[in-house]
Amino acid sequence: MTNASLPMDDGARCGLVSVRVNGQAFGVPVLQVQDVIAPTPINRVPLAPPEVAGSLNLRGRIVTAVDMRRRLGMPDRETPQAAMSVIVERGGELYALLIDDVGDVLWLSQAEHEPNPVTLTAAWRDLCDGLYRLERELLLVLNVERVLSLTPASLAA
């Protein structure tokens, strides 16, 4: 991660770590990202919700891994071991969002931010905070808090 030289989130611009899940581009707010790590062994946790891939050891801290493909209702990846992780923090605990690939940190103008299209499925609408129109594709902004809110309701859904 080389985001130190870049300006901080100053209201006018918004920093997003671009990630790719099953071909779709998403942005994770850079201020919430602690780390991006290479594929690492994940230990399964039986009885955990299906979205939870397991837990992993990040330099002595236990990190719970959430598979974004499952969280977004996408098909499982063919090589499960190859997932990259974006480490985010919530309530003093670390979580790893398993994604397919990580791109650059994008600094986008708040003015270009657009709300979720009304046709977006309810599940995705709940997890995304609007989008940005990039040159070649659309980038959905992930709401980390809601991605990690695995309430029993979302389990049933």
Binding site: P41, N43, V45, P46, L47, A48, P49, V52, G54, S55, L56, N57, G60, I62, T64, V66, R90, G91, E93, Y95, L148, L150, P152
Partner: peptide
Amino acid sequence: SGILRHLRIYSGATIVGDGSVIM
């Protein structure tokens, strides 16, 4: 971790000698 806390059968997690996480 918070999203697994509803699982009553686990009281915690730990990291064992080889670095893996076990419940």
